[in-house]
């Protein structure tokens, strides 16, 4: 009795990848926006890296995490969108009527969303290299940045899947993605913390976990292997993932329960 969790997860993931690829407009806009951030901010703002606070850092390496986080959040958001689509099409119920593992039904879109995120992040990093990116920590540093992107994406995937499962409604899930803007921009997005003028923005940046993601990526890209600076991103991920994955799990349990 019971179905094979691995086999079911595989089936669900493959199917989600397939349908994502068939809807290029579900990921192309986000990819373009992320690449656009990189090009425009690098082109328009790179002069400010002459300021002493930047300590000679390359602005491209400074702004790259913003673009990566934007791509990661977009990719991970795909998980929630797939779930909402399935609920609206009645396909989610169809799956619940089969012996498929309940966990696999929810994991499939999340894994597919994470894979989408990895591809998008690699594309953005590739573009950065084409623009002349140099990374002090080399290949290991790029790998670290990718892992942080995946971790942060997972946190966001938990959030978006949770909202999707709870509401089952495209508009609500769409509204949920608006958190994207404060997450990205109420932070050390364009300049280091010391250069932020407004007190309210300083407070927001301190609260916003994305700040620690940016800082830890920038450490890897610009400063080198400074352990505790790198770890702040990891801590942020662990804390936020715990919250959002719990939220997703509770919502999933509710969505597949028969109460």
């Amino acid at each position: 009795m019971g179905n094979n969790l691995w086999k079911d997860t595989w089936l669900m993931t493959v199917r989600n990848i397939k349908t994502t690829l068939r809807n290029p407009f579900s990921f192309i806009p986000n990819l373009i926006i992320s690449a656009f951030f990189l090009l425009v901010y690098e082109g328009g703002l790179s002069g400010i890296s002459q300021l002493p606070t930047f300590e000679g850092a390359n602005y491209l390496a400074f702004i790259l995490p913003v673009s990566i986080v934007s791509a990661a959040i977009g990719g991970a958001g795909g998980a929630g969108q797939s779930i909402v689509k399935d609920i609206e099409n009645g396909f989610f119920s169809r799956l619940l009527l089969t012996p498929a593992s309940r966990l696999a039904i929810v994991l499939g879109p999340i894994i597919a969303g994470m894979l989408q995120l990895v591809v998008q992040t690699l594309l953005i990093i590739g573009i950065a290299f084409l623009l002349g990116l140099e990374v002090v920590t080399g290949f290991g540093g790029i790998l670290f940045v990718l892992l942080i992107a995946v971790g942060w994406g997972l946190a966001f995937a938990g959030y978006s899947a949770g909202v999707a499962l709870r509401t089952g409604n495209a508009q609500a899930a769409q509204a949920g993605t608006f958190i994207f803007f404060p997450l990205i921009f109420l932070s050390t997005t364009f300049v280091p913390y010391e250069l932020i003028e407004a007190q309210w923005l300083k407070i927001a940046a301190t609260i916003n976990p994305t700040t620690y993601i940016f800082e830890s990526m920038r450490t890897a890209l610009i400063d080198g292997w400074v352990f505790w600076d790198l770890m702040q991103g990891v801590f942020a991920i662990v804390i936020v993932c715990t919250i959002t994955i719990t939220f997703a799990a509770i919502s999933a349990k509710k969505a597949v329960s028969r109460g």
């Binding site: 199917r15 068939r22 099409n89 009645g90 396909f91 169809r94 799956l95 009527l97």
Partner: peptide, 13 residues
């Protein structure tokens, strides 16, 4: 086998 009032299919497949 179950067919609910609303069909349950994935339009992208």
């Amino acid at each position: 086998g179950v067919a609910l009032q609303e069909t349950g299919v994935d339009p992208d497949l």
